[in-house]
Amino acid sequence: MTEGKAQAGPGGSHPRHVLVPLLNSPVRLSVVAALSPVDRAGFGVVRDLVEVTDSALSKQVAALEAAGWVAVSKDRVGRRPLTWLALTAEGRAVYRRHVAALRAIAEGDGAGHDPDAAGAAPGGEDLPAGGVVRDAGMRRLSGG
């Protein structure tokens, strides 16, 4: 999978600040992930990979295209229209950062104490002052 370190976002050093809201949708993330290793892919190929309907994919692609992350081009094979999807350079960079942030969160690599997590630990237990709380939280969430 794509490598890269999560960078600090504008809200602080926790990797969650780098997450892109538009990619929090599983379908949109899947579309961008499917396009990341290719130059371009046909609309039908992406639809089959992501396992959604034509109209659902159209809607998500339109959102990604409006954000400037996916380029849509139309071609013609004989009389049949053909739609190609491709990630733009910006889309590729955004995807890499998003995945790096997800990986950093999953591995508990966020730096420092996240003030937004105060009082939010599962079970409502008090948080240790100044400590890193993700590890306990993540272990509890993952059941490990």
Binding site: M1, S30, A33, S36, A41, L49, V99, L102
Partner: peptide, 19 residues
């Protein structure tokens, strides 16, 4: 399936289709 797993699976599937 988590978001990371999903993204990795999509990348693998797309690479396989381009074989």
């Amino acid at each position: 399936m988590g978001a990371l797993d999903r993204a990795a699976a999509m990348e693998r599937a797309a690479r396989a289709r381009s074989g």
